[in-house]
Design a protein around this nucleic acid. Structure first.
Lengths: 219, 219
DNA sequence: CGCCTGTTTGAGAAGGCTCAACGGACGTGG
DNA sequence: CCACGTCCGTTGAGCCTTCTCAAACAGGCG
C-alpha cells in the first residue's frame, strides 16, 4: 500500500463483473488495485476457464501485460473496484529513477507468482475438500493481513462458479463439497460475508502453511 | 542469455538430482541457469509433490528466494547443471545502478510466472492426454527457442515421476497415458531424447497457444 | 548375482464428472 | 400486480476418468 501512495496518479472506478484486461489484449497500462476484488484467469478454446489468482487491494494488476506484447491472461473484477493507473512508459521511468520502487514492483510480482505456485500445488495435489478449505483459508489470511477480517469474518464476493474455476472442479462437485464443509460446521456464508467457526481446523484441512512474505532487508 | 553474460561471475557445477534450494531454506544467493535442466517444486506434509515449472538455460533460479525471508518452494536439478552465482546483496546493487538489468530481472520473473499460469490452466482444466501433450509440446517449444531442438528431436531428461508430479497425475496413469500417445505415434523416447513425429498434432491435442514472450519496447 | 531405480500392466475402487431437473431471489415489462 | 426470464444455488442418478494397490519386468551397477 505504501507503494501505491507514492505512485498514485489517476483513479479509475469500475463495476463488478467487468473485464479489465481481455485475454490476448495489448494493454497499454498497468494498474494497482486500490480497493475491491479482481482475479486473473485463462481460458481454453472450448470455454473451460481457470482462475489463476485473486487480486486484493495493494496488488499489482497487469505486470505481465506491461512486460509482454500481449497479455497471456484476462483480468476481471469481482466487486466494484478502484484502480490507480500507471501508464506503461512510466514503468521504465520508475526503473531508471526510482530503484526502490522498481524493487517493489519486482517484489510484488514475485509475491503474486508465489501465490500462483501455491494454487498449482492445491489444484494439482489436493482432493476437493482440501482444495476448498485451502482456498477459503488462503483468502482469509490475506484479508487478515489487510485488516479486512475480524474474528473469523471476512468479505467473500466469489460465487460457486468462481470457486470451481479457481480449484479445477466442476460446479456440481464444488457445491456438494461446500455443502459438506458447511454441514460439519466449518463456515457459514451469507450476504457475501464468510464466517469461519474454526479457522485452525480449516487450515489443517487445507494443509496451508504460514507463508508470511516478509520483505528481506535489502542489504 | 545476454543478461547472463553481463552479470556473469563465479560458475558453479552441480550433478543431476540435487536440491539447489531446499523448501523453507533461507538461501543467500540468486542464480542464473547457464546450462542443464532444473525444476521448482512444492510439497505437502504427507509427501505429495507438485512440480511448478521446469528451468532451462537462461532462466533465473531463486528470484523468489531472494525476495522473501524463506523460499516457498524447493529447486532441484534434473541434469548436470552450471550456475552463475549472484550474491543477494548484489541484486540491490543492480537495481540501484543498472536499471536495464533490473528490468531484465523483472521481465524474467514475469515470464516464469506466465509459465506457471499456463501450468495451472493445464493441471486445473485439462484431462490426462491433453496434459501430457501440453507438457511435451511446451518443453519442445522452449527448447526450440533456445536452439536445442532439431526437426522434432530434443533432449528430455524427465522420468515418469517428474511428469506425473508436474501434471498432477498418478504415476500409473501417467504411464498409461504416455503409452497411449506412443501407440498412436505421437512420439518416441529413447536415451533421453524425445522425437516428435507430428508436433502440430500434439500441439492441437495440448491446446497450446503460441505465446512468444516478446519483450515490449521500453518506451 | 542381487539390488536398485524406473517402467509396465492389471484389477478393482472411488472421487469427481455429466446431465438433468428444481427452487428461490430478483428485476423487468406488460 | 402478475408473468416471465435470469442468475445462482441445490440435489440426484449414473457413468467414467483416474486412483490405489499389487506385481512383474528391464537395465545398470557394485
Amino acid at each position: 500500500m505504501a507503494f501505491i501512495q507514492k505512485v498514485k496518479s489517476a483513479h479509475v472506478s469500475l463495476g463488478a463483473g467487468i473485464d479489465i484486461v481481455a485475454p490476448e489484449q495489448d494493454s497499454d497500462e498497468m494498474y494497482t488495485l486500490f480497493s475491491g476484488w479482481a482475479f486473473r484467469y485463462k481460458e481454453l478454446a472450448d470455454g473451460r476457464r481457470q482462475i489463476l489468482n485473486f487480486l486484493l487491494p495493494g496488488d499489482l494488476v497487469g505486470l505481465q501485460a506491461s512486460m509482454f506484447n500481449a497479455a497471456q491472461h484476462g483480468i476481471a473484477t469481482l466487486t466494484e473496484v478502484q484502480l490507480c493507473v500507471l501508464p506503461r512508459r512510466k514503468v521504465w521511468t520508475i526503473f531508471e529513477t526510482m530503484p526502490d520502487l522498481a524493487f517493489d514492483i519486482t517484489w510484488l510480482g514475485a509475491r503474486e507468482e508465489s501465490i500462483v505456485d501455491q494454487n498449482l500445488l492445491t489444484v494439482g495435489r489436493m482432493n476437493a475438500r482440501e482444495r476448498v478449505a485451502a482456498l477459503i483459508i488462503g483468502l482469509y489470511k490475506r484479508c487478515n493481513a489487510l485488516g479486512l477480517a475480524k474474528d473469523g469474518m471476512f468479505p467473500f464476493p466469489l460465487n460457486q462458479h468462481h470457486i470451481s474455476d479457481a480449484l479445477g472442479l466442476s460446479l456440481a462437485h464444488t457445491n456438494k463439497t461446500l455443502a459438506y464443509l458447511r454441514r460439519i460446521g466449518m463456515f457459514t456464508l451469507e450476504g457475501g460475508m464468510m464466517d469461519l467457526a474454526n479457522p485452525r481446523a480449516l487450515q489443517r484441512m487445507g494443509q496451508v502453511f504460514d507463508a508470511e512474505f516478509q520483505a528481506r532487508p535489502l542489504i
